[in-house]
Nucleic acid binder design. Sequence first.
DNA 1: AGAAGATGTTAGTCATCGTTAACACCGGGC
DNA 2: GCCCGGTGTTAACGATGACTAACATCTTCT
Lengths: 207, 207
Amino acid sequence: MRSVTSAGSPPRDRRRRRSEILDAAAELFAARGFHGVSIEEIGGAVGTSGPALYRHFSGKEALLAEILLEVSERLHTSAARRVTEAPDAERALESLLTGQIEFALGHPSLITVHDRELGNVPEPARRRIRRLQRLYLEEWVTVLSELYPSCPPPRLRAATHAVFGLLNSTPHSAGEVPARAMAGLLRGMARAALAALQDTAHSQEES
Amino acid sequence: MRSVTSAGSPPRDRRRRRSEILDAAAELFAARGFHGVSIEEIGGAVGTSGPALYRHFSGKEALLAEILLEVSERLHTSAARRVTEAPDAERALESLLTGQIEFALGHPSLITVHDRELGNVPEPARRRIRRLQRLYLEEWVTVLSELYPSCPPPRLRAATHAVFGLLNSTPHSAGEVPARAMAGLLRGMARAALAALQDTAHSQEES
DNA sequence: AGAAGATGTTAGTCATCGTTAACACCGGGC
DNA sequence: GCCCGGTGTTAACGATGACTAACATCTTCT
């Protein structure tokens, strides 16, 4: 029987342990890839040894799936909130940038895992993650299509991916520049890159 | 005994087979990661089965090492040539952008492998690859520091990584936009992002 | 106190994989 | 015509790793 919560969420200790495991796993996956990390190592990273993890997760793939689901959910709901709360498209874009930059600077290994390891997630969860990623992208595209109405959506999607690539470069330039300065740099570059959508909107032909 | 070339390079058939294998391996590594691909699969991708690859490479890690070495060498020598041949820094940057964009659009899987799998390369080759990557980066930083002399080098390095992230987003937005338009889009965004280095050079404090 | 459940341990299993061994074919130079 | 280097085959081996089983411990509720 449940003790204090009659039918609610599991006790706090269990939740903490779970997220501790997830954090350690994410770090290791980011460093050496999903298949490059063993269950034994993940266990070791949280002080237990190997198969203890099966008390908390059904398997290695479930670990990865939960990491990616959590990340893409968090990104999407945060973006949706930011967009609806912003008074106009300009401010919405500013807020989206802030959110993505904070996340990229604060959790570089989650960023890394997020766009590297989707291929290793088994099929039921894969679709949900893909969907959330698409929704996140569409938040950006919606805002951008309001700011740059002359730009066709496929172009906006490609541009958004490019901005993600720019912002998510943080794992590569780790510690070259203090975090606050890095945030300002990334924001400035991203804004400028997006502003270029206006000028180049029709220049599809080059020599 | 060698037949036609007394001491030169190996016969053309052998070279072709080698690069055929390397191409297939790169494609597979990009799709599922180094540890996610078996020797048997790589063999299957080139019509042979499994251990035949050992006639051409000393092992799986050697495959990866050669892929990364080739890519980083190609990027670096191409960049060095472009910089020395350019009449001024402005033109040099333009040429560097062209080279990186061509490569990112033409070989997305090599781009993917290049910045994901360095950690799986064994130590002797790893250092050489790192060195080439650093040299490639420094070509950019040298040019940029001439164009933006007020910007400190660490900031330029971070900005360059950001531009790489932007340009290397091609694997994510595959086929959303025709290649020529994509090239123009990426060039415009990258140029604008770099131009922002002038304005934001001193704005390190934000609310 | 004692039963129950949660959480950990170690030992074992089964599959997969990188690598090697032993053998077959094949084409060109004596 | 025969040998030989190059290239492929299949079979085996050894290691690793995900996962399960069986057992221990500790907390907690009655």
